[in-house]
Design a protein around this nucleic acid. Structure first.
Lengths: 197, 197
DNA sequence: GTCAATAGAATGAATGTTCATTCAGTGGAG
DNA sequence: CTCCACTGAATGAACATTCATTCTATTGAC
């Protein structure tokens, strides 16, 4: 390879991305504390030392994975979101995006929602999380104000719907339910009735 | 060595219980993989070796904690449960018990519901878990059959309500909501409307 | 075009640390 | 004295991290 663009370092970014993806897979399977660094290197197809070229410490790697995945999920939610559609339609859009995301990125959702991160997230990670909740909140708050949703703290309604969603996903992963289209539709209706006025 | 309790002869079960409780506290805070054995011994006020008198390995200790807490939660749920009361009243009883339990045993709930256990639970732990879900299921299934609840798999309804409950707890834990009586009541109503026909 | 010089990316054996587990020793009860 | 629950220093395995070295590809002299 001879052509090297000044503004693009393609190879380094490939390795960085490979490390991030390998780490995501292992973290979602075994948890952050249950995952050693060498297996991450092995799965990414790079040397152990290479990880430390891109990430100062294991904790920095964890935070990079978290920020990437949280931002990715938020992006999946708000891309082409029908902000001015009727509330029920907006809710359907949100529900569909969440489910599509889970189906396409199961490791992302497992990592983000099935693990308890608080203790090792840094400032930046918290900001990214805040942006995520902020976006949800702006929509839920509006629906509460317009008396579409129940008169309750919007943060509570978010916690309930998000919790129900994660509970459903967890039950599916644990083999307690089968996620067919009718089940997904039934769950959407349940969640809508939970919060609608 | 110096004797810490002159006038108390320690029954073996005291130490076992102290170890289980110390382990529960640390596991709920830092997770199972994030908790080393020596700190468990220190918090329990016993020597490291004593832990291995009562539990063959760390994994055995984890499973003992899991079984104890899962059984404890089930017990809190079904003690004096109004099995023959009207459905809404039964639901209220369930909700109240869950919330009381969380308020009285926050570490238990954090450990049981905020961590991903599957990979290290043994046969016995799965049986205890099965008993827990079996009890919930018998009640939910009956309510579906009597057309009190929506016509959906009872396992889905359980996942939604339990998920919403855990989501609310997590939000409270993370400081996103304040768990006052009105909030708890509002959440109960949300969950009831989610599943009722 | 060729190739020696150079830069810096990549590596994994080596390092120091932390962990789960063991066991030789201690002390109290009978 | 005999037991045995109990202890924590000791052990070796596994860990996160480092760094001397190798590899790769770009440069510029000819």
């Amino acid at each position: 390879m001879r052509n090297q663009n000044q503004n693009e370092k393609s190879a380094p970014q490939d390795k960085r991305a490979a490390i991030l993806f390998a780490a995501l897979e292992l973290f979602s399977e075994r948890g952050v504390h249950g995952t050693a660094v060498p297996p991450v290197a092995e799965r990414a197809g790079v040397g152990i030392g290479t990880i430390y070229r891109y990430f100062e410490t294991k904790e920095a790697l964890i935070n990079a994975v978290y920020q990437q995945q949280r931002a990715d999920l938020l992006n999946a939610l708000r891309t082409d979101f029908p902000t001015f559609a009727p509330p029920r339609e907006q809710f359907h859009a949100m529900w569909t995006r969440m489910l599509d995301y889970a189906q396409e990125n199961p490791e992302s959702l497992t990592f983000l929602e099935l693990h308890h991160h608080r203790s090792y997230l840094d400032e930046k990670s918290r900001e990214v999380e805040e942006e995520f909740f902020g976006w949800l909140n702006s929509h839920f708050q509006a629906a509460v104000r317009f008396q579409v949703f129940k008169d309750a703290p919007s943060e509570l309604l978010i916690a309930i719907v998000k919790g129900a969603y994660v509970g459903m996903m967890r039950a599916a992963w644990d083999g307690r339910i089968e996620l067919g289209p009718e089940v997904i539709k039934a769950a959407e209706d349940c969640c809508w009735e939970a919060i609608r006025r």
